[in-house]
Simulated scan of single mutants.
Amino acid sequence: MLATFTDSVPEGSAWVHEVKWDGWRVVTEIRGGALHLTSRSGRDITASFPELGGLVLPDLVLDGEIVALDESGVPSLHALADRISGPVRAGRARPRPVTVMLFDVMALGGRDLTGEPWAQRRALLEALAPSLEHDRWAVPEVYDDGALLLDVTAQNGLEGVVSKRRDSRYLPGERSPYWLKRPHRTTRSVVVGGWREETGAHRRLGAVLVGVPRDDGRLDLLGRVGSGLAGEAGRDLLAHLAPLAAEECPFADVPREDAAGARWLRPETVVDVESLGLAAQGRLRQPTYRGLRPDLTSADVTADVADAAAEPATSEEPTDGR
């Protein structure tokens, strides 16, 4: 279940509010004592996170966000990128273990809970919390005052707030108006279709050209992203992009000033960028690179970009109980 963008945190007792974590959505399934982790794109990523094993629980399915926390307790998206390239690289990355922030339970003991209201699912999750909470798993608090939580998350460098209707059912794979996300800055996933060298520096990444897939398989250009690519982040991304070199431009239309000196790529790499939204011409405003998203494919990008660019959702109460 995915949240819909809103420009204001809803008020009233019908809503509850959580921290919006800067990480990757992950479905945790325990069957017969074995742990399975599945990314949003449906990829099995269990082998990449060996430190998450060891839970002794009945069969259940949980929804949450996998995060890598820095020394200050703030999630680092860049620190996650090395953790999903297979068990060999995961083993090298163990000095930076992850934590799973759990916020929903979809099934318990073979019983499907998706038709139950959020409040009931939350009560079950909290009952499971004593068995879940240790150094690698957590059930974060929820709050009644969304406006205050928005201020606190901004002060502490966190991504934002997610607000949920207490009576909302869980709709797998759907974007719901009964879960609303209010980030401090818009973060979206985009596809990389090309890159340009830093001026005066051979084979050093200066900027990437990013876009969103069209129905015909090409990309609509959202702009160039250069901020955030200095140092290790840029070197790691360039190493990832190098094997994807292509002769043909993957974009449907690229202005001459963007195409100049560009090296084209097969449109397979998904990254997260932070921006101030879209300018009138459909280009990202002041974009900053946040990190690789190897848990996603280009097919996962369209809905997020379209949603972030759309009109904000309202917080009117639903009439059908979801």
Rank of each mutant, 00 (worst) to 15 (best):
F5H: 08
D7V: 00
S8H: 14
G12Y: 00
W15A: 08
V19H: 09
T28E: 00
T28N: 00
T28V: 15
D44F: 11
I45W: 07
A47M: 10
F49N: 05
P50W: 13
P50V: 05
E51G: 09
G53A: 14
L55N: 10
V56P: 06
P58R: 08
D59Y: 02
L60E: 10
V61I: 15
V61A: 03
I66V: 15
A68G: 04
E71M: 02
E71Q: 09
V74E: 10
P75W: 05
P75Q: 02
S76W: 09
I84S: 14
G86F: 12
P87W: 01
P87A: 12
V88T: 14
V88Y: 04
A90S: 14
P95F: 07
R96Q: 13
M101E: 11
M101S: 01
D104Y: 07
M106R: 15
A107D: 09
G109P: 11
G110R: 09
D112G: 12
A119F: 14
A119C: 03
Q120D: 15
R122I: 01
A123F: 10
A127G: 13
L132M: 11
L132Q: 08
E133G: 02
R136Q: 02
A138P: 08
A138V: 10
A138E: 13
V139Q: 03
P140R: 08
E141K: 09
E141L: 07
V142D: 06
Y143A: 09
Y143I: 00
G146T: 05
L148G: 09
L149N: 03
V152M: 11
A154V: 04
A154C: 06
Q155I: 00
G157M: 05
G157W: 06
L158F: 00
E159C: 08
K164Y: 03
R166H: 01
D167L: 07
S176R: 13
W179R: 05
R182T: 12
R185F: 08
T187F: 09
R188Q: 14
V190I: 12
V191W: 08
E197A: 14
E198Q: 15
G200Y: 00
A201K: 15
R204N: 04
R204A: 12
V208P: 03
L209P: 11
L209K: 13
V210L: 03
D215T: 14
D215F: 08
L221W: 13
G223I: 02
R224W: 01
R224T: 11
L229T: 04
A230M: 03
A233S: 12
R235E: 15
R235V: 07
D236P: 03
L241T: 02
P243T: 11
A246K: 02
C249Y: 01
D253K: 09
D253H: 13
A259V: 02
A259E: 11
A260Q: 11
G261K: 06
A262D: 10
L265N: 05
V271I: 15
V273H: 04
V273F: 02
L276G: 15
G277L: 04
L278M: 12
A279I: 01
R285C: 00
R290W: 04
P294R: 06
P294V: 10
A303D: 15
V305C: 02
V305W: 10
A306Q: 14
D307G: 14
A308L: 06
E311Y: 12
T314Y: 03
T319E: 12
T319K: 12
G321M: 03
